[in-house]
């Protein structure tokens, strides 16, 4: 097991004594060399989960272990140094994650130089190599982040994380700003690195066809908690949780004729507050299959088929 997340919670204090439960008791284990896709509603806590795992947020409760070593509850600057060599994160918002006063070369080389992985005279070639792998020419190295398009910036963020050749990368929407051809190039690159240096990925994304394509397993999150987890193929084609089903049904297809005849399942009803959570299923207010029991009793996390878990009273 490369990463073991146990009962992890991250609460934000938004007013004195009032807490927003962004991540609320998540359990997830990732094996060496595995790609796990993470999908879920906007605002459900995916980025917070990622940031807590890499130590950017202190853990409110629970634990995260990396190769059987429990990571600190709150990171000191030496902890960042220690763990960033092997655990990297690609951020959702590429622009705010790149220092505007540094050139692309400085951005990509920063990590490897801190960890003394590159010789000074090899820097240009190394940076050019990683830029090239993400589809950017060598001469972009001397430019600054604001001189790039959205998708070019996103790729600078990817090159920066890959340059360290880490073991584990938390990718937060790594390909959302890229055209499908460059997406394909990046996905093939990640697949290749998985084979060649045993890379493991937690892949947060909204594009379900891509998640199904790249990941071995797929996790579905709703309002701070996981609601379904299983082999991607199964979660995509035979999903068990009503929320997952509504997600899959809303995935637009690149076919205008099909889209004109699409029947939308628009989820109606209140999204419950992540501040004052009531008992019962978190999806009950919007679930098309809601039953009486759902409103008072929390569904438990059950293995319905081998390695396919769900929390829903229907199962």
């Amino acid at each position: 097991m490369i990463l073991e997340i146990k009962n992890l919670k991250k609460y934000f204090e938004i007013k004195k004594g009032e807490f927003l439960h962004a991540v609320d008791d998540v359990n997830l284990s990732i094996q060496e060399n595995e790609i796990v896709g993470l999908v879920g509603e906007s605002g459900c806590g995916k980025s917070t989960l990622g940031r807590t795992v890499v130590g950017l947020y202190d853990k409110t409760a629970g634990s995260v272990s990396y190769r059987n070593q429990v990571l600190p509850k709150s990171y000191s600057s030496s902890d960042f140094w220690k763990y960033s060599r092997e655990i990297q994160m690609i951020f959702q918002d590429p622009y705010s994650a790149l220092n505007p006063r540094m050139t692309v070369k400085e951005i990509v080389a920063e990590g490897p130089l801190i960890h003394s992985l590159w010789k000074k005279n090899a820097i240009n070639d190394k940076v050019a190599y990683w830029l090239n792998r993400v589809g950017l020419p060598r001469d972009h190295m001397s430019r600054y982040p604001h001189e790039f398009s959205g998708g070019q910036r996103q790729r600078i963020g990817i090159a920066r994380a890959l340059a360290l050749e880490p073991k584990l990368i938390i990718c937060d929407e790594p390909i959302s700003a890229l055209d499908v051809s460059v997406q394909a190039q990046i996905i093939n690159l990640m697949g290749e690195l998985k084979e060649s240096f045993g890379l493991t990925l937690l892949f947060i994304a909204h594009d379900l066809s891509m998640v199904r394509y790249v990941s071995d397993r797929m996790a579905v999150m709703y309002l701070g908690a996981l609601v379904e987890l299983g082999p991607s193929y199964e979660v995509y084609y035979s999903s068990l949780h009503p929320y997952t089903q509504s997600l899959i049904a809303s995935n637009p297809e690149p076919d205008p004729e099909k889209e004109r005849h699409r029947k939308f399942i628009i989820l109606k009803g209140e999204i419950p507050s992540p501040v004052n959570l009531k008992p019962g299923c978190r999806f009950a207010g919007r679930c098309p299959k809601v039953m009486d029991i759902c409103r008072g009793t929390n569904p438990v996390w059950k293995e319905i088929k081998p390695s396919h878990f769900v929390s829903c009273h229907l199962h």
Binding site: G40, E41, A177, L208
Partner: peptide, 16 residues
């Protein structure tokens, strides 16, 4: 790129 950071159900609502 108005919906790149949205899941497909919220995206459907915004497009609507």
């Amino acid at each position: 790129e108005p919906t790149t950071a949205l899941d497909v159900t919220i995206q459907a609502q915004i497009l609507h």
